[in-house]
């Protein structure tokens, strides 16, 4: 089974890169001179954020594919990507304030990137909630795909709106971007960590997809059994 081999490949890559990333974060990367040890959360926070965004882009892509092909496999992929994306966004929203409190002195600020992340999280929470309240699998897949597409179209508009809105108002705290003049050792650690979290994303996505495939298989079997039973009763 190729899916099985692929899963083993992803899992082993995840194990290797995650071990390397953890070692580099705690043993190799230098301690940032101003922020101190808390800066190390950056190596977890940034890869999580990038992969969360990858997840939402995948929701958009698979939703589109579903509407054009009506193949339920794309709906299952969109759902799995959305769930892992929401999980990663939740972690981004948790790790961010843990870093911000000692560095900026506040847990939260309505900065463009923070606000965008929060709005994204709300959009995809809505996407997942919608799916729970529609009985028919086909209707659920179609309507979820519509939300998955419109939700992603909204992202650039939200971004520009919030960015412009912030530049007009006084900037509360931040001085200088995170990426400005990153130390080579820090950059190397970040890239290994990005690879590790991308494999983590793919591994979780694959596992979630397996569960969903199994669930829909049983659903089909149950429906077939029920139909056969109804047939038997009638004759």
């Amino acid at each position: 089974m190729s899916r099985c081999k692929f899963a083993i490949f992803i899992d082993s890559m995840l194990f290797i890169t995650m071990a390397a990333a953890m070692a580099m974060i705690f043993l190799y990367a230098p301690i940032e001179s101003e922020m101190g040890i808390v800066q190390k959360i950056f190596y977890v926070h940034v890869p999580l954020a990038w992969n969360a965004f990858l997840g939402f882009a995948m929701v958009f892509y698979y939703s589109f594919r579903y509407l054009s092909t009506r193949n339920p496999r794309y709906d299952r992929r969109a759902l799995s990507a959305a769930e892992v994306g929401v999980l990663f966004t939740t972690l981004v929203l948790i790790t961010g304030p843990i870093w911000a409190k000692p560095v900026w002195g506040i847990w939260w600020t309505w900065d463009a990137r923070l606000t965008l992340t929060l709005v994204l999280w709300l959009i995809y929470i809505g996407y997942l909630m919608l799916r729970r309240y529609i009985e028919s699998p086909e209707r659920r897949a179609v309507l979820a795909a519509v939300v998955g597409i419109t939700g992603f179209i909204d992202v650039p508009l939200v971004y520009f709106a919030i960015r412009w809105w912030r530049t007009q108002h006084p900037q509360p705290v931040i001085a200088g971007g995170e990426g400005s003049g990153l130390d080579p050792a820090m950059a190397a650690t970040l890239w290994v960590s990005v690879a590790a979290f991308t494999f983590l994303f793919l591994a979780l996505f694959g596992r979630r997809l397996d569960v969903e495939v199994e669930r829909s298989r049983r659903e089909t079997e149950r429906d077939a059994a029920e139909a056969a039973h109804a047939q038997g009763v009638r004759t």
Binding site: L122, I123, G126, L130, D154, V158, A161, I162, W165
Partner: peptide, 27 residues
């Protein structure tokens, strides 16, 4: 139209609609 197809009916509309309307609201 999407929310009308669900078991929650109207309750789901603000949850879906308000986050997407953020840019429109600000503007």
């Amino acid at each position: 139209a999407v929310a009308a197809n669900t078991r929650m009916r109207g309750l789901l509309l603000p949850i879906l609609f308000l986050p997407l309307s953020v840019p429109a609201l600000i503007a």
